[in-house]
Computed example of a mutant assay.
Amino acid sequence: MMMMKSINVMCNSRLFLEGILGLLSAFGPFVMDMYLAAFPEIAMFYRTEPSMVQLSLTACTVGLACGQLVFGAVSDAFGRKNPLLASLILYVVASFVCMESPSITIFIAMRFFQGLAAAGGVVISRSIAADRYAGAALARMYGVIGMINGVSTVVAPMFGGAVIDGWGWKAVFLLLLIIGLVMFLGTVALPESLPVASRQRLNPSVFVQGMKMVATNRKFSSPTVQYGFVMAMIFINLASGPFIMNRYGLTPGQISLVFGVNAVAIAIAAGVASGCRSMRKTMRIANIGMLVFAFATSATLLLELGFWIYEIAVFCMYLFIGGMCTASTTLAMEAERENAGMASAIFGTIGFVAGGIVSPLVGIGDILLTTSLLFVVVSAAAFYLSSLKGDRNISIK
Results as ranks from 00 to 15, higher is better:
M1F: 08
V9H: 11
F16S: 13
M32C: 05
M34T: 15
P40F: 11
M44V: 12
E49R: 09
V62M: 06
Q68N: 08
A77D: 05
F78P: 02
L88T: 03
F96N: 00
F96A: 11
F96K: 00
E100P: 00
E100R: 12
P102G: 12
A109C: 10
R126C: 06
I128A: 03
A139K: 01
M141G: 05
Y142H: 13
G143E: 13
I145W: 04
V151A: 09
G160P: 11
V163S: 02
G166N: 05
A171S: 15
A171R: 07
L174D: 06
L177F: 15
V182H: 07
F184E: 07
A189S: 14
L190K: 10
E192D: 05
L194N: 05
V196L: 10
Q200N: 02
M213P: 01
Y227H: 13
F229H: 06
N237F: 15
N237A: 11
P242C: 08
F243K: 02
N246T: 14
N246H: 04
G249I: 13
G253S: 12
V258R: 01
I266C: 08
S278D: 14
I285L: 05
N287P: 02
V292E: 03
F293S: 00
S298D: 03
A299N: 06
E304Y: 09
I309L: 15
E311V: 12
F320P: 04
I321P: 01
T329W: 01
T330P: 00
E334S: 11
A335E: 09
A343Q: 00
I350R: 00
F352P: 01
G356I: 06
I367S: 10
I367W: 14
T371H: 08
V376M: 15
V376L: 01
A380Q: 00
F383W: 12
S387M: 13
L388H: 05
S395N: 14
I396E: 02
